[in-house]
């Protein structure tokens, strides 16, 4: 796998490969890149931000309250497209609990506009 380390502005180009039972990172300028490359290879995770539609029209901006596995992002977006937010909310409110079974809840990131 080829990727770019984003831990510092150097942006080293990394190659991550499995050699036997070991994960080997090449191209990193420092140890942080090795850790990053390993994580990106074996369990890449992202905090996802997106929009949910409100039952009464309009959208709410939301985020997952923790990073989720990259391969769950598509599921989350599919879930988000179908979900409708009911009632009142404000920043930080939990709008859905663990919708894609990876322990992450969905939080509103903005207050409802009057």
């Amino acid at each position: 796998m080829n990727t770019t380390c984003i831990m510092c502005p150097m942006g080293c180009s990394l190659t991550v490969e499995e050699e036997g039972k070991e994960i080997v990172v090449k191209g990193n300028g420092c140890p942080r890149g090795e850790k990053y490359g390993r994580a990106e290879y074996s369990h890449p995770e992202r905090v996802v931000t997106t929009l949910l539609k409100k039952e009464k029209g309009g959208v709410v901006s939301v985020k997952t309250d923790r990073p989720i596995p990259k391969d769950k992002i598509a599921d989350l977006l599919l879930w988000a497209a179908a979900f409708r937010v009911q009632g009142q909310y404000k920043t930080g409110d939990v709008l859905a609990v663990n919708p894609v079974d990876c322990g992450a809840n969905i939080l509103a990131t903005a207050d409802e506009e009057e």
Binding site: V47, T49, K63, T109
Partner: peptide, 18 residues
């Protein structure tokens, strides 16, 4: 609405509206 704001100022990653 994406996150990545405030890492320096608040020491945590916030979305723009937050």
């Amino acid at each position: 609405i994406h996150n990545g704001f405030g890492l320096h100022y608040f020491g945590e990653e916030l979305t723009g509206p937050e």
